[in-house]
Nucleic acid binder design. Structure first.
Length: 767
DNA sequence: CTGTTAACGGGACACAACCC
DNA sequence: GGGTTGTGTCCCGTTAACAG
């Protein structure tokens, strides 16, 4: 032990500098517990600190820890090694030459963990630290670490070891055991808890010869090995604690049995003392648990604080590099942003992965801002454009482009695509608005030329131009177009929109996949409403997605069908116009349609106009060849007509004012308006009112051709057996009918279908 | 700094003991 | 006997410590 000035007034001689060999280490470890006992500071814990701390117990699960290997043999030590080793030893031994009070001053600055480590370095240091005088050092260290007071039966060093010296399991040495069970005063892993904790209910089986009352004298915990840290109502005892108590209990029992004087009283005193001790342990453990919970919380807060500082440091570096906070936010939740303090090395490592993410966000933001700017400019143009449209005769609207199409025209696009820092105002579009009629006219001419070219590619131009008087088209384009060979007015000039996902082509509305557009009017009035969502960004905001321009293509199938129908009504397909066909009003029956009662209870087949017949053509399959029957005047009497659905659509407008601009109404509403505002009681189409021609193209099922239902003949399925309305679809040749249970049992037993599906395995054939 | 490892935490389930 | 409660077991994903 180090001498103090107070004790001797003289500094003791340094400890010999012999390096402790393997034997010394072994001896030292075996003596540690003795020394600690000598220090008279250890409490009465059943397992002393040095017991489980000693080398004999310090092993990794299942493996005995290997002794430290000798670095060099005594016979041939190298000079360098000697020098290094001796220098190290000398520096340590010098510590011991210092006066004790100064030494304690220095030790008092150490955290408890280092104090424990220091006490394990050498015998003299251990002796020094275990002396009664050193208790202040331990206490100061504990208090500076804000550790709770030790329990009544623990010494300060023992307590320091339990609280602060490492996170290994005290039984098996498993690493990373953060939690201490203060009720049994042990730091043990789950596996050891499972192995060593004895629940009260198990005691009679494990210790059949002992009274259960023994357990009242032993410390316990409420958290079992299987409890996942959650306290239960049961009490769990450490097995070796029970064993120790059983032994002690046995000694008392033996004394009583031997009739030793006062034996019974001694046992009673021991019992009372233990019960009080257990109460103290429980109270102390509760205090310690609170301390530990606070410590854990503080550790968590500290970690969060450090993490926050790291994130701020990273953000700040990116800020210095010129990135904006809005873009830096892209990495806010990256795992590399949270963690310990940011080092230079760490920055170099994480920057290459984080920076591209910020750049990506920046690029997207810039693109988005630009998109919004362009959208705003188009919106600005729309206001001017709408004002211009309202100065026109409404029927002219149909030949005008949408604002998106206008924005795509070169002179307009130049204004809209101007650099982002240029402010666009009314003046910017002045030239565009002045040249608008020319622009639109050129645009229409281009479209006409393009469509003519497309048609000419698939069929020869008509030899004699169709008469314009035949054309009932409402659009101004007809009059505006040059009177050349007007192939676009022919009934066989059928187009379709080739844009994928064209909303107007939605087959759900039309029962027709290739929605035909008839002639110039049809083609020009179609404005595709599809949105381009190929960029995943727009999958979340469809309204922001750019509008896809219409791509009008020749419908070769539609044209061929139109030619068939024209031929059927004995006209020349190379000359017959759309207007002529509309005027004739022929009605057609489809050979593939089967008469049924689907049409408002009427038995018969749908009747088609020549337009709806073409729209209907793909209803029976893309490749199905349909033969058409044109109704004779007498057969027309069998047709039950209903109102054209286009009358009920919101696609009508007055041709005398702009009240219905961009707010199309039903025919009835527009008729009322004509009477009320323009005093027109008997309006005519299209001079007083008109509708968007595109709406008409696919309206099929207008009238029904009434037919007589066929009389039953021959062997028929027993359809009267309404109690058995189901038929097995897996037995196509059988007419047998079942009830619902029967058809399911049949499918299960005969066809081995456990979960039959209606439509696929069985069907209802009787209502 | 990184990959590995084991504790930790939560859930599901089977089974036994206990209670009414 | 049935319902409730607690124990024991297993599994899986997350987290923190640690060794290289």
């Amino acid at each position: 032990m180090v001498a103090t000035r107070r004790q001797s007034g003289r500094v003791s001689a340094p400890v010999p500098e012999d390096a402790p060999d393997a034997k010394d280490v072994e001896d030292e470890e075996s003596e540690l517990s003795d020394l600690e006992d000598d220090a008279s500071m250890a409490g009465s814990a059943s397992e002393s600190e040095s017991d489980w701390e000693s080398g004999a117990h310090r092993k990794v699960r299942g493996k005995a820890s290997a002794k430290r290997a000798k670095v060099s043999s005594k016979s041939s030590p190298s000079k360098v090694q000697i020098t290094k080793a001796s220098r190290g030893r000398r520096s340590l031994s010098l510590l011991l030459t210092m006066p004790m009070d100064i030494l304690f001053e220095i030790f008092g600055l150490l955290p408890p963990k280092d104090l424990v480590s220091l006490s394990r370095t050498s015998k003299p240091l251990r002796q020094t630290l275990m002396s009664r005088n050193a208790i202040t050092v331990w206490k100061a260290a504990r208090e500076s670490a804000e550790g709770p007071d030790p329990p009544h039966d623990f010494s300060e060093p023992q307590w320091a070891v339990l609280l602060f010296a490492g996170t290994n399991c005290q039984v098996c040495g498993a690493k990373g055991i953060l939690n201490i069970d203060f009720f049994i005063r042990r730091r043990v892993c789950i596996a050891c808890k499972k192995k060593n904790l004895v629940v009260t209910s198990k005691f009679p089986r494990l210790y059949p010869d002992y009274d259960r009352a023994i357990l009242d004298l032993i410390q316990y915990t409420n958290v079992g090995g299987w409890g996942h840290g959650i306290a239960s109502k049961s009490k769990f005892y450490w097995q070796s604690d029970i064993d120790d108590m059983v032994k002690e209990w046995g000694v008392f029992q033996k004394s009583i049995h031997m009739r030793a004087p006062g034996a019974k009283q001694k046992l009673e005193e021991f019992r009372e003392e233990r019960i009080k001790a257990i109460q103290l342990i429980v109270q102390h453990a509760e205090t310690c648990q609170k301390w530990y919970d606070n410590l854990s919380r503080k550790r968590l807060t500290d970690n969060q604080e450090t993490s926050k500082k790291r994130a701020e440091a990273i953000f700040s570096r990116f800020r210095e590099m010129g990135y904006l906070d809005a873009d830096i936010q892209a990495i806010a939740y990256e795992s590399q942003v949270s963690g310990g303090e940011l080092t230079e090395r760490g920055w170099v490592r994480i920057r290459p992965t984080l920076e591209p993410k910020i750049q990506e966000r920046r690029d997207r933001r810039v693109a988005e801002e630009r998109r919004r700017l362009v959208k705003d400019r188009v919106q600005f143009l729309k206001v001017l454009y709408t004002a211009h449209l309202k100065t026109l005769v409404p029927s002219q609207w149909l030949s005008y482009p949408t604002v998106e199409e206008l924005a795509d025209m070169v002179p307009v696009k130049q204004v809209i695509d101007a650099a982002s820092d240029i402010i666009i105002h009314g003046e910017s579009f002045k030239e565009v608005m002045v040249s608008l009629p020319t622009l639109v006219s050129a645009w229409n001419e281009n479209r006409r030329a393009l469509l003519t070219e497309k048609l000419a590619a698939v069929k020869p131009l008509p030899e004699v131009p169709p008469s314009h008087t035949d054309n009932l088209s409402v659009t101004a384009s007809s009059s505006a177009s040059p009177a050349t060979s007007d192939i676009l007015a022919l009934a066989t000039s059928v187009f379709q929109c080739g844009t994928a996902k064209c909303e107007v082509n939605n087959p759900q509305w039309t029962k027709c996949q290739d929605n035909p557009l008839f002639g110039w009017d049809g083609a020009i009035s179609h404005h595709c409403m599809a949105r381009d969502t190929t960029n995943s960004y727009f999958s979340f905001s469809l309204r922001l997605a750019p509008v896809v321009p219409s791509v009008i293509e020749v419908s070769s199938k539609g044209s061929a069908l139109a030619a068939d129908l024209v031929t059927l009504v004995k006209l020349d397909p190379t000359r017959a116009t759309i207007a002529t066909m509309d005027q004739r009003g022929d009605l057609f029956l489809c050979s593939e349609c089967v008469p049924d009662k689907q049409h408002d209870g009427l038995y018969g087949r749908p009747v088609f106009t020549w337009r709806s017949a073409i729209a209907h053509a793909t209803a029976h399959g893309q490749d199905k060849i349909i033969s058409w029957h044109v109704l004779t005047p007498s057969e027309v009497a069998n047709v039950k007509r209903s109102q054209d659905p286009v009358h009920r659509d919101y696609c009508w407008t007055c041709n005398h004012c702009t009240i219905h601009f961009d707010a199309w109404k039903t025919k009835a509403t527009v008729l009322e308006h004509l009477v009320a505002v323009h005093k027109i009681v008997q309006p005519t189409e299209p001079s007083d009112l008109f509708f968007i021609p595109e709406k008409r193209r696919s309206r099929a099922l207008l009238p029904i051709f009434i037919e007589r239902p066929p009389q039953p003949s021959g062997r028929q399925p027993n359809l009267n057996a309404s109690s058995k309305p189901f038929r097995c679809k897996r037995c196509p040749k059988s007419n047998r009918l079942f009830d619902i249970g029967g058809v399911q049992a049949h499918l299960r037993d005969k066809h081995k279908i456990a979960s039959p599906m209606q439509g696929q395995d069985w069907d209802r054939v009787v209502d």
